[in-house]
Amino acid sequence: MATVKPTYGPISSYSRVHILHLVQTQSPRTIAELCAATGLHANTVREHVQRLIDGGYIIQETERRTTRGRPRILYSAATGKPEASSPIAREKAAAAARRGEMLRRALPETAGSLNAEESRQLDALIEHYEESGFEPVINEEQLTVELTPCPHAAALPEHRPMLCQVHLGLMQGVLAQARGPLFARCVRTPSSPEECTVELERTAL
């Protein structure tokens, strides 16, 4: 049986994943709203949010007020779309594309059947998941991303649906940020906790 590696990086903490899920499902959010939803102290929430901003998963903006009073800081999920794009995520996607293209030029046999846009998207996706402790395996013919063994296999069963939904949302954001036709459609229902396979599809741009 394959060894399940621990997660690390900005989304290694369950609390950060929970916060990310909250902003993915409803944006924008304030620190006070995130505190109320998680039960965490404001300082703890701010620390988690900053890690997520630094990782390119969350963006912040200052509220535009039409009345008197101090504007609030609002937090939203970075989706890769123009209206919700993180500068950090943009640079990550661009850097991954540069490295992927250099590899394909140096080792032409590594070039697959995908076009340049699709390859650029998968370059970004692979680096994103390697950063998070996964070892992604891409099947270009079936358009799947195999993430088995899942580092979250030891998570409580009641937490798994949220974890899967967060990672699907992240994958959709990475693919959108890299610009191309590939879209993360769903996470297959696993037959064991260690299994994790994501199905991709091509969509019209």
Score class of each variant (00 low, 15 high):
residue 1 M to C: 12
residue 2 A to F: 10
residue 2 A to N: 09
residue 4 V to I: 15
residue 6 P to F: 15
residue 11 I to A: 05
residue 12 S to F: 12
residue 12 S to V: 01
residue 13 S to I: 10
residue 14 Y to F: 12
residue 17 V to Y: 02
residue 17 V to M: 13
residue 18 H to K: 13
residue 18 H to Y: 11
residue 20 L to H: 00
residue 21 H to Q: 13
residue 24 Q to F: 03
residue 25 T to C: 04
residue 26 Q to E: 13
residue 27 S to Y: 04
residue 27 S to W: 03
residue 28 P to D: 03
residue 28 P to G: 07
residue 28 P to F: 02
residue 29 R to E: 00
residue 34 L to H: 02
residue 36 A to L: 02
residue 37 A to P: 01
residue 42 A to E: 09
residue 44 T to Y: 09
residue 44 T to E: 12
residue 46 R to M: 14
residue 46 R to D: 08
residue 46 R to L: 11
residue 47 E to N: 13
residue 48 H to A: 05
residue 48 H to L: 00
residue 52 L to G: 01
residue 52 L to A: 08
residue 52 L to D: 02
residue 54 D to G: 04
residue 55 G to M: 05
residue 57 Y to N: 11
residue 58 I to N: 01
residue 58 I to A: 02
residue 59 I to A: 02
residue 61 E to M: 10
residue 62 T to H: 01
residue 66 T to D: 09
residue 66 T to P: 01
residue 67 T to M: 13
residue 70 R to F: 06
residue 71 P to D: 09
residue 71 P to C: 14
residue 71 P to I: 12
residue 72 R to D: 00
residue 72 R to I: 00
residue 74 L to R: 01
residue 75 Y to E: 02
residue 77 A to C: 07
residue 77 A to R: 02
residue 78 A to P: 01
residue 78 A to Q: 01
residue 80 G to D: 08
residue 81 K to N: 11
residue 81 K to L: 15
residue 81 K to A: 15
residue 84 A to Q: 12
residue 87 P to A: 05
residue 88 I to C: 06
residue 89 A to Q: 09
residue 90 R to H: 15
residue 93 A to W: 00
residue 93 A to Q: 01
residue 94 A to L: 12
residue 94 A to C: 07
residue 97 A to S: 10
residue 99 R to N: 08
residue 99 R to D: 11
residue 100 G to H: 04
residue 100 G to Q: 06
residue 100 G to M: 05
residue 100 G to E: 03
residue 103 L to T: 10
residue 103 L to A: 12
residue 106 A to S: 11
residue 106 A to C: 02
residue 106 A to R: 05
residue 107 L to D: 08
residue 112 G to S: 12
residue 112 G to T: 03
residue 113 S to G: 10
residue 113 S to I: 12
residue 114 L to P: 04
residue 114 L to N: 09
residue 115 N to W: 05
residue 117 E to N: 13
residue 117 E to M: 10
residue 121 Q to E: 11
residue 123 D to P: 13
residue 129 Y to K: 05
residue 129 Y to A: 06
residue 129 Y to N: 05
residue 131 E to W: 06
residue 131 E to D: 14
residue 131 E to H: 10
residue 133 G to A: 08
residue 134 F to R: 01
residue 134 F to Y: 14
residue 135 E to I: 11
residue 136 P to M: 07
residue 140 E to N: 06
residue 141 E to K: 11
residue 141 E to R: 10
residue 143 L to Y: 09
residue 143 L to R: 05
residue 146 E to D: 15
residue 146 E to A: 05
residue 147 L to R: 02
residue 147 L to G: 03
residue 148 T to K: 05
residue 149 P to W: 03
residue 150 C to M: 11
residue 150 C to Q: 02
residue 150 C to P: 00
residue 151 P to T: 07
residue 151 P to H: 04
residue 153 A to L: 09
residue 154 A to H: 14
residue 155 A to P: 00
residue 156 L to A: 15
residue 161 P to V: 04
residue 161 P to I: 04
residue 162 M to V: 14
residue 162 M to F: 03
residue 164 C to T: 12
residue 167 H to Y: 08
residue 168 L to K: 06
residue 168 L to N: 10
residue 171 M to V: 02
residue 172 Q to D: 08
residue 174 V to Q: 06
residue 174 V to Y: 03
residue 174 V to S: 04
residue 175 L to H: 07
residue 178 A to H: 09
residue 180 G to F: 07
residue 185 R to E: 15
residue 189 T to R: 15
residue 190 P to F: 13
residue 192 S to F: 07
residue 194 E to S: 07
residue 196 C to N: 00
residue 199 E to S: 11
residue 201 E to L: 13
residue 202 R to H: 08
residue 203 T to D: 10
